[in-house]
Amino acid sequence: MSDPLEAPGELPPDVAAPGNGAENGPESRDGAGQKREGRLARLRFSKKRDMPGGLWLKCESCASVIFRKELEQKDRVCPSCDFHFTLPGRERVALTLDPGTWVEHYSELAPLDRLKFREKGSYQDKLAAASNRLGQQDALLCGTGEILGRRVALAVLDFSFLGGSMGEVVGEKIALATDLARSEKRAFVVFTASGGARMHEGALSLMQMAKTCAALARLNAAGGFSICVMTHPTTGGVTASFASVCDLVLAEPGALIGFAGPRVIATTLRQELPSGFQRSEFLMQKGMLDAIVSRGTMRQELARLIDYSLGPRAD
């Protein structure tokens, strides 16, 4: 826990709560093929902030040198090992929705430091820094839009904002997004990337697990349809609440997904973790995911899946 992953994006690793991946440098061991496993085994998160400013950068998974523009053109999927880099929230929105359909809602909601949380620095300073850097108030973007013409309420967790951790505002905006889905009869689609609950908001952040589930229960009662796409990394209180109880749970390839983070587990058990442990492929094999979907086909897949929520008549 003392060597937090400084993961994709400028992640302040020390904000997300229990058991989360955020404080755990992923020991990536991927099950998909010998070569790939060898490469992913070397996965270490770069200490560089976001995408380095230079023309070239090193894949955090296979360590091959990639031309930066090429990576961006390929939607931040490594051309040589297919590693799906964590996407900044706004890029995810742009990549998911039909151009010009995004209407952001509730962007004005800003977190409060209700516990007056003091650690080495203050929570307020951390919030101010993140919000200045990203131009948004908290880690969740929510709004409405269309995916190949299908109307959705979209929520996207941005890992670069305090590790995508869930406090009051993130929980409330998830709930508000399900309200939008319900009142406007849209499919609810959420992309997660989070270290879990936000410690700086104490039990208030823990209660967001119940709040978001209560909101989903209400959506369910109204006959709504929900899809969660878990992306790298999704752990702790986010995995253990709304993300796992959506009607469909998908994941991007190779994503770290779990309750406790791998380092917590390794420390608790004092043993090596099995190969590919807590990666998407492992979770699907264990029956925890409906499907693994690559970034390149995500829009098409989501659109087709949403169509099935419309009932038996295809015409």
């Binding site: 229990p18 697990m209 609440s241 709304f242 109880v245 309750f259 406790a260």
Partner: peptide
């Protein structure tokens, strides 16, 4: 807290907790 272990993760610790929260509401 819930147990952080290999078996717990394999059998879906997060999913089990989430299902319970949803059901109890």
């Amino acid at each position: 807290g819930a147990y952080p272990g290999i078996g717990a993760e394999e059998r879906g610790q997060a999913m089990a907790i989430a299902e319970n929260i949803l059901a109890m509401v």
